[in-house]
Write a protein that binds this DNA or RNA. Structure first.
Lengths: 342, 342
DNA sequence: TAAGTTTGTTCAATCGTTTGAACAATTTGA
DNA sequence: TCAAATTGTTCAAACGATTGAACAAACTTA
């Protein structure tokens, strides 16, 4: 079809100079004269030259590719993080490769392997729910590829991490419900082996203790935090001889499930039972009543992770391997599902 | 840190053979003996060898990278399409680079350029709302890089396209409202210069004509289709001396805006005014009342686009440049917002 | 004006892998 | 038994860009 490729060699030929002169001109090397630089630039434009990134990446040992591994792209939290990452690294000439693990351990492993094979310069990841063995991440570390965990992190590997203060978020969420006059607050939690959910449970418990409310095992549940989990657990909660007057769910989806069930049962939200979720997924503001939740500052989280990556790239002298542990402060978002009239 | 790199040269040295023998062994070349292949495989595993993708990509002139350009990743439709694409191409050894244009013409151009520079093997794109000049896409074509448009396409470039039958989707949506007994159906449409929205308007009009309903200009609006547009237009519709008894919105977001306003005004949905949206965004099933909508088969669309890409790669003999125009059939999803009791 | 410095360019090696051609060793066929 | 075919491997040249060293020419400086 078209003259598919213009290489620096061709530009060189056209100008009767050497490829290396062209390369240096394009890279603005100080020893190249302005005249040559201009001539090269003009010819490059004229010949519609597009640098071959692979060649330079190979030579420089740097692909300018950043891998991001997330459980799901269609969860708004994660796509926002990705947006934050992109905003920061695109400006520095990096491209982002996103791969989804769908919370499958196997897929996560193959994704990591694919990214390493593609010679990404770094990996930003959120660990899948299924994952307990971290060998594939060890691998990344061994290869000397910067690795940064966000949200679902593991401290044991000694890599950079960035999370929100889940404990505090949960504490505030529970405290807010207490402020609204709730006395029996149920918790729809995630699996305790995931640190982040564990921290939320602790925050919830501490809030109860602080305000001298009894802790009742029958009100505390663990689950996969999907919509159906919210429904099922809420059903069980309603069946109790003494049902709760509030539900704090560790995800917006499970909170939504709870809300749907309550609405179907004709239970008034928030007066009979108040609800608060976690993550500030967009839909929480669309539903009726709008759902209170906790904002995780997803985009900021991505930006921060990206900046840490860039710092790692800048200081490849690996002498100062100080682990970077960033904790962002969550923000309570109070909406109709928990705002009781005074 | 670690012995960061194992190359085929090192494997070769360890086995006292040449790098080319190693390369051929790894690639299962027929002329290499099974003994050698096994020895190489064993040594590769032992030395934790990871092929350098950049080098092979450079040599082979093929990066195994596929670029996907979408307006927004946090719109579920687009992330589903991406998922469909990934499912298909990952299996064939490709990685996907996603870049978002945020409906900015400038960003779209730089994205395309970045992808070309990265030497992607192909590009799957949905044209941004702002875009009217297609020079950057011409560029892709000129370079001989397979280009496939989906959803927001442009036929004039002569590249492969994949869309749903927007006309039919709109026709059915409007017809469904008519079936429910609605007589004055308003339309919250997108900008007419985007073919897809134009087709939906045509489908809507044709449904009215088919069922002998009058077409009233005051009921037909163009907008950016966001939540606020839905609210504003609905407000205007309610102010009419003869307000509509149904609203067909060209996006789920604008349908949601309409719904919110109607609920605030205490208007019964669907009995006083029925609503139907377009796209089947997940939140449509979460809101109350749940929103009727049109399913665009997003994941299938992505899969189809990916398959077309793979076909193009397989037949790089570019003799048979038959443009591939796929049209998927949309599916009506009827929920509470338009289902009137009989 | 001879020695030293600066300027602008070319040379040549390199990144790690691939691949057709070449070649030696072995096997087959008539 | 000698030529032909097969098998398994090595050779060497790519792919396109980068980069330190080398070098010639021009310019300073004493």
């Amino acid at each position: 079809m078209a003259n598919k490729k213009t290489t620096i060699t061709e530009i060189a030929r056209a100008l009767a100079i050497t490829p290396s002169a062209v390369s240096k001109a394009l890279n603005n090397h100080p020893r190249i004269s302005d005249t040559t630089k201009e001539a090269v630039a003009a010819m490059a434009k004229k010949m519609n030259y597009q640098p071959n990134h692979l060649a330079s990446a190979l030579r420089k040992g740097k692909s300018n590719l950043l891998g991001v591994v997330i459980p799901m792209a269609n969860i708004s939290f994660f796509s926002s993080v990705v947006k934050g990452v992109e905003d920061v690294v695109n400006a520095e000439g990096y491209n982002v490769i996103i791969s989804q693990s769908h919370d499958s351990f196997e897929k996560e492993c193959t994704n990591i392997e694919a990214l390493l094979k593609t010679q990404v310069d770094g990996i930003i990841a959120s660990i899948g729910n299924e994952t307990t063995d971290l060998q594939h991440y060890e691998n990344v570390k061994e290869k000397g590829v910067p690795l940064i965990f966000f949200d679902r992190v593991d401290e044991s590997l000694g890599v950079d991490t960035i999370i929100i203060d889940d404990y505090l978020g949960a504490f505030r969420a529970a405290e807010h419900l207490i402020d609204q006059g709730c006395k029996r607050i149920a918790h729809i939690g995630g699996h305790k082996h995931v640190p982040l959910y564990h921290n939320r449970i602790k925050g919830y418990l501490e809030a109860l203790r602080t305000h001298h409310l009894p802790i009742e095992e029958e009100l505390i549940w663990e689950s996969g935090l999907e919509i159906k989990d919210g429904r099922e657990i809420t059903e069980k909660l309603l069946a109790l001889s003494n049902p709760p007057d509030a539900i704090f769910a560790s995800s917006d989806y499970s909170a939504l499930g709870a809300q749907q069930l309550l609405l179907e049962q004709g239970i008034n939200i928030p007066d009979e039972i108040a609800i608060i979720g976690f993550s500030n997924e967009p839909f929480t503001s669309y539903v009726t009543p709008s759902l209170s939740t906790v904002n995780q500052h997803s985009e900021q989280m991505g930006q921060r992770a990206a900046k840490i990556f860039l710092e790692r790239m800048a200081s490849k002298n690996k002498t100062d391997f100080m682990q970077n542990q960033t904790v962002l402060t969550p923000e309570l978002i109070i909406r109709d599902s928990s705002r009781r009239g005074t």
